[in-house]
């Protein structure tokens, strides 16, 4: 029997994660692209850590930190009424951190590549930093934004270790497609595993193809 639940949950998680990441990454990438602070390398390293660490390491520490038996988890539970372990909220928090470099790095690179004279010209024209960011800088790095959004989305779809550690395998709550595949294979249910795998394969292929088509300018040529 094939359920759509895990697939829907996967895309819901990827969507929420991407939106949250967008709000976090734009200010963070903007700050990183401008700052001369001594802490910049430290912060850049922290942002990039999920690229190299095994996801299980992150998942393990999230599990420890968020568990209600722990001071931080306990505080979250008592004061905010949030339980992050084995919940969708926990998956979102973990995914946001896990996919952070995929969103921050393209945006930061895009902002750094813009000529410094653009924000300078805007400031001489009396425009605030916020106006300059939204009216001048971001509209000129649309490709980087698209790359960041899609990579973060696709990376969240492909996540396994972090989700397994912190989310477990609760159907309808934390059982995303990647976990479901593992589960079905363990149960020797190859047909269902194949269905989830093929769907993920096709969808991620299409998403990435669109990015390369758009950023490579192929679509414009096609429309002409």
């Amino acid at each position: 029997m094939i359920e759509w639940g895990p697939l829907l949950l996967t895309f819901e998680l990827a969507l929420v994660t991407t939106v949250v990441l967008l709000f976090i990454s734009i200010p963070l990438a903007y700050w990183l692209s401008k700052t001369k602070s001594r802490f910049k390398p430290v912060l850049e390293t922290l942002v990039s850590m999920p690229l190299v660490l095994p996801p299980t390491v992150l998942g393990f520490y999230f599990l420890v930190a968020f568990s209600p038996g722990n001071a931080f988890g306990n505080w979250l539970n008592n004061w905010l009424g949030i339980q992050l372990v084995f919940s969708f909220g926990g998956l979102v928090v973990a995914s946001v951190i896990y996919s952070l470099p995929f969103m921050v790095q393209p945006i930061q690179a895009g902002l750094s590549a813009l000529p410094a004279s653009l924000p300078e010209a805007a400031s001489i024209l009396g425009k605030s930093k916020i106006t300059t960011l939204f009216k001048v800088l971001l509209p000129n790095i649309k490709k980087s934004l698209l790359t960041g959004i899609v990579l973060a989305f696709a990376h969240t779809i492909g996540e396994f270790g972090v989700v397994l550690m912190i989310g477990g395998n609760i159907p309808g709550k934390t059982r995303v497609a990647s976990i479901a595949i593992y589960d079905e294979v363990e149960a020797l249910n190859y047909e269902a595993a194949n269905f989830y795998s093929l769907t993920l394969f096709a969808i991620t292929f299409i998403i990435l193809l669109i990015v390369y088509l758009v950023n490579g300018g192929y679509l414009k040529r096609f429309w002409k």
Partner: peptide
């Protein structure tokens, strides 16, 4: 005073036109 608070106009060596705006929008933005 910040650049915003100084009444200067500047033409940059590389012109610094905003690529995401048309000629008219560049002027209107100012």
């Amino acid at each position: 005073r910040s650049p915003q608070e100084r009444a200067t106009g500047m033409v940059f060596q590389d012109y610094a036109l905003f690529p995401n705006m048309t000629v008219r929008e560049n002027l209107e933005f100012a």
